[in-house]
Computed example of a mutant assay.
Amino acid sequence: MALESISLETLIIVLAAVTLLVGNVTLWRRFSSLQKRFDEQDARHRKELQMLSQSQVGMGRKLVDFELKVGKQPEPTEVAKPVAAKPQTPAITGSDDAGSYNNAVNLFSQGFTPDEVARRCGLSKAEANLMALVNKEAVSHH
């Protein structure tokens, strides 16, 4: 009887060990799968972050270039308010970016709104709004 009880205890121990082994293998596979997914997502996020950083650097360079172009303009001697009569035809169209920006700076100095400047210079409303903000900052620093 002692031999039968030892073998039963041994069988239980062996079954427990096999169960633990199977559980560990299952957990290891699951962990490996999750680690792989994490690594893939991490790589994707790093790539996206790098792309966003490069975009910001590019936009920063464009803004600096823009500020340099605007900064080279002569300052007007007096600010004239636009007459609400009939609108003028723009002298410079959007085909010449530097000319359009120069014309926009002059129009802002005369008190035109961003929408009017965008229409007259062939700029997008976003460009005109950005230029209005830069122009406002430049005027407030003088």
Rank of each mutant, 00 (worst) to 15 (best):
F66L: 15
E78W: 05
K62G: 08
Q88C: 06
A91K: 13
P90A: 11
E67R: 15
T89S: 09
V64Y: 04
Q88V: 13
Q54I: 01
T93V: 08
E48N: 10
I92F: 00
E40M: 06
A80W: 01
P82C: 04
Q50L: 11
R61V: 10
F66R: 15
V79H: 10
K69D: 01
G71Y: 00
A91T: 07
E48Y: 04
L49I: 14
T93M: 07
F66G: 03
L68A: 05
A91G: 14
E67G: 06
V83N: 00
T93W: 04
M59S: 14
K86D: 08
Q50K: 13
E48H: 07
A43C: 02
A84N: 05
Q56K: 13
T93S: 14
A85S: 11
E78N: 10
L52N: 12
R46T: 02
A43L: 12
K62Y: 07
K62L: 14
K69C: 05
A84G: 09
E78V: 10
L52W: 06
Q56P: 02
L49Q: 07
D65G: 13
L68M: 14
Q56W: 07
K62N: 13
V79L: 07
R46C: 05
E75D: 11
R44D: 07
G60I: 04
L49A: 14
L52S: 09
T89A: 11
T93F: 03
E48K: 09
Q88R: 13
M59H: 08
Q88Y: 00
P90N: 04
L52T: 08
K69H: 08
P76N: 05
P82W: 00
G60K: 12
K86G: 02
V64D: 14
L49V: 06
K81F: 08
P74C: 09
F66E: 03
E78Q: 09
K81A: 11
E67A: 12
I92R: 03
L49Y: 03
G71V: 01
V70N: 02
V79W: 01
S55M: 08
E67H: 06
K72Q: 13
P76C: 09
M59G: 02
E67T: 09
V79I: 06
E67S: 08
E75Y: 03
P82S: 00
V57K: 14
R44E: 04
R46V: 04
S55H: 09
F66I: 11
G58A: 07
A84T: 07
A80R: 07
L63W: 00
L49D: 02
R44G: 05
E75W: 01
G58F: 04
A80F: 00
Q50Y: 03
Q88W: 00
K47H: 10
Q88F: 01
P74G: 09
M51I: 06
G58N: 13
F66Q: 00
P76G: 08
E40V: 10
K47G: 01
R46H: 07
T77V: 12
I92M: 02
A91L: 11
D42F: 05
A84S: 12
E48Q: 15
H45D: 03
T89V: 14
K62R: 14
L63S: 06
V64H: 13
V79Y: 01
R61S: 10
P90I: 02
P87H: 01
V64A: 13
S53W: 01
K69R: 12
A85K: 05
V70K: 03
K47S: 11
H45F: 07
P87W: 00
G60Q: 15
S55Q: 14
K72C: 01
